[in-house]
């Protein structure tokens, strides 16, 4: 039941990300989502008593709950950008789209999943939803920072999917991915800083304007 509770938490937070109007709210939701993901992994680790999974959970906690969100918040404060997240699609429409995505995911899962275990089905649906919503955030939000967050959310979803399907990815793959994600976030942060300095804004659809 605890797994189900955490999975619901991840789903709720993913939806909540779609109604965020400001960047700090998006980062905070991402942090909470990663925290719930950590709890799911921890639950899994306790149940199967594998040392490797504990390490992976710890890495998840360190990188995605503590380090990256703090880095992103500091970045937002430093580049002093207007905190409002431009929405290409208003919150209600975003939510309805996400609903269709989730429905699609559940239908898809029910085709090939022959288990009666609610937790497994839930984990599948939630993971696919998270990947799709992460992609949605990347596409339908104006600020460049939402693209990093979208990417990180997608990574969360893939991690959850892998854990459910195959009992987790190979250990070294996990470590490598964690470092990759971390470095990726740092580099994108640096890029963000530069983009803001040159263009004095970080709105992606305006990056194609000529700047001479």
């Amino acid at each position: 039941m605890m797994t189900l509770f955490f999975l619901t938490g991840i789903l709720v937070l993913t939806y909540a990300m779609l109604v965020c109007h400001r960047i700090p709210a998006l980062i905070q939701n991402f942090r909470l989502q990663s925290l719930f993901l950590f709890l799911v992994t921890l639950d899994f680790a306790v149940r199967h008593r594998e040392a490797k999974v504990f390490v992976v959970a710890g890495l998840l906690l360190l990188v995605k709950v503590i380090l990256i969100p703090s880095f992103l918040s500091r970045l937002v404060k430093k580049i002093k950008v207007d905190e409002r997240l431009g929405l290409f699609l208003n919150p209600l429409l975003s939510l309805i789209s996400a609903l269709f995505l989730t429905w699609g995911a559940s239908v898809f899962c029910s085709w090939f999943l022959y288990t009666r275990q609610t937790a497994v089905f839930a984990a599948f649906v939630v993971s696919i939803t998270v990947v799709l919503v992460g992609f949605f955030i990347m596409v339908f939000r104006m600020k460049a920072l939402s693209q990093i967050v979208g990417l990180l959310v997608m990574e969360n979803g893939i991690f959850l999917l892998a854990s459910v399907m195959a009992g987790g990815m190979p250990f070294f793959v996990e470590i490598a991915i964690a470092f990759d994600v971390f470095v990726c976030a740092i580099i994108t942060g640096i890029f963000m800083y530069r983009i803001n300095k040159v263009f004095t804004h970080i709105e992606v659809h305006r990056l194609t304007d000529l700047k001479g």
Partner: peptide, 8 residues
């Protein structure tokens, strides 16, 4: 965020 949303 909720406060800033009101006053901004």
């Amino acid at each position: 965020v909720s406060f800033m949303d009101r006053v901004d």
